[in-house]
Amino acid sequence: MYQTNYHRPSSVQEAVKLIGGAAEGKYLAGGMTLIATMKQRLAAPSDLVDLRHIAELKGITVNGRSVRIGAATTHHDVASSAELEAVCPAICALASHIGDPHVRHMGTIGGSIANNDPAADYPAAMLALDATIVTNSRQIAAADFFTGLFETALDDGEIITAITFDAPAKAAYQKFPNPASRYAMAGVFVARRDNGEVRVAVTGAGSNGVFRHQGMEAALAGNWSPDAVGNISVDASDLLTDLHASAAYRAKLIKVMTKRAVAAA
């Protein structure tokens, strides 16, 4: 790891100010991605601004069906929140399968979304839940937020403060893990609204990161059952091929995970 300066602000305002004053500053949340990258000398921030001690970034509030999760809320806290479980158990289940207990007690939803790893789990949930990413300066629809591999709509120095969404009528996430990393090799989050609208978001498989599958959404909107996707074809040409799985296999997995998610929802 290269030398860096560590800061511990206690408000969002202070954090933004610290980043503004740093040569090449980075926010630090759980550090599960950032610290590992720094140890490998692939990142060399001049300053680290720690977001974990800012009270306003933490916690989960559920108001009727409207949900707000603070950006610095850990995966463990999402997984074990009873209020959240009552309205959207799918996101609790998703969080409970991220990494291992150590990662879940350190890693945060804000960090995961800001990082936008193409195999991360939360981005699929954000897209399928039609969530809003709230920052210190604006609100960004999930559809506009994830812009490419490890790319987001965040400006320099912009902090995610929370994510909000309305809990759907039904939702579930099914993930087929990469045997080595256990990140998603194909992860599918399905959500169905009371008005029958369906969203199917896929992570781990797209060559440009998380995406929605309109074909399956349409099929499921007409017939909310696992069999509905039977005849839908998943185009492999936009999918990833790597050491662990070909695009064709990922296409197959997306269908299987979608069916299973619908069955589980």
Partner: peptide, 25 residues
């Protein structure tokens, strides 16, 4: 039998399984 395998890029000899992200224990 189920998980492990070292892979090199046949073109340039780079080790593709150089961490536990890609080498499945």
């Amino acid at each position: 039998a189920l998980l492990e395998g070292v892979h090199y890029d046949p073109e340039n000899g780079q080790l593709l399984t150089a961490s536990y992200m890609d080498y499945a224990m």
